[in-house]
Simulated assay, not measured.
Amino acid sequence: MPERQRADARRNYARILAVAEQEVAAHGAAASLEQIARVTGVGSATVRRHFPTRRALLEAVSRKRIEALAARAHELAGEGDSRDALLTWMGELVAYCVSARGLAAVLVDDGAGSDPVHENACSAAMEEAAGPLLRRAVRDGAVAADVTVADLIALAVGVVLATEHHPDHGTRADRLFRLTVEGFSPLR
């Protein structure tokens, strides 16, 4: 949000974002933009002016969690066993996506990354943050050399989206994640 915007525009942005956080928590990525506008007390055009796409809204709602995940990746990058560090971060990514409805949808690779107007800023932040973790694990022979951070994010997102309607979503997502780890980790 640019600081040079009028005070009322900054207030509208903050109110819209606060309501959007509640709506996404309740309804996930499918939260209604019209409902957000209604609850906020602004027109849907105002919501769309601040958040021109659903992805832009979801990215804004998810920003704090993305920043926390990025910080955690940096924290783990120099710690202990490289495989354990990467798997810890991946497990935390899955857990965050389970607890933060809509976050998995923000991280979905829609192929628009080559178009800067539609770049997925959350995915890009995760790729940058997890890069050192993955490179270290590959260098140590703990992960196959052809695995990319985008692969790992897609894996986490796939697990979360595949289990989102399960009665025990978190436990099921964690179980599937742990099962898939054997697919990208060499046998020890």
Rank of each mutant, 00 (worst) to 15 (best):
V117Q: 15
Q5T: 14
R54A: 13
D81Y: 05
G80V: 01
E127G: 08
L103R: 02
V106E: 10
R49T: 10
E21L: 01
A95E: 06
V117T: 13
P52G: 13
P2N: 15
A14M: 01
F177R: 04
L58M: 07
D8R: 11
G28I: 10
E128P: 02
R48K: 15
R10I: 13
E23W: 06
I66M: 07
G183A: 09
R4W: 14
G28N: 07
E59N: 11
T53N: 12
V98K: 04
R15Y: 04
V181H: 03
R83A: 13
R10S: 11
A20P: 00
A25R: 09
R178M: 10
R63L: 12
C122T: 13
I36P: 02
A20F: 02
V98A: 13
G91V: 02
L69K: 02
R4Q: 14
M1T: 11
H118T: 13
P186V: 07
A71G: 14
G80M: 08
R178F: 08
K64R: 14
D81V: 07
H74M: 01
V181S: 06
D140S: 11
P52V: 14
L187K: 11
A142W: 01
A129I: 08
H169E: 15
A104W: 02
V159D: 02
D174K: 12
T88E: 12
H165T: 15
S185W: 00
K64P: 07
D168V: 15
T171M: 12
T180K: 02
H74W: 09
V42F: 07
D81F: 06
V98R: 06
E92F: 06
R101C: 08
L155V: 06
A112P: 04
V94F: 04
V160W: 05
A125C: 08
S99L: 15
H50V: 02
E21A: 11
L58F: 03
R83P: 00
R65N: 13
R65V: 11
A7C: 00
A14T: 12
E79Y: 12
V24K: 03
L179A: 15
D115E: 14
V143F: 01
A137L: 05
T163W: 01
A7S: 15
L93M: 04
G170S: 14
R65W: 09
D146A: 08
D146C: 01
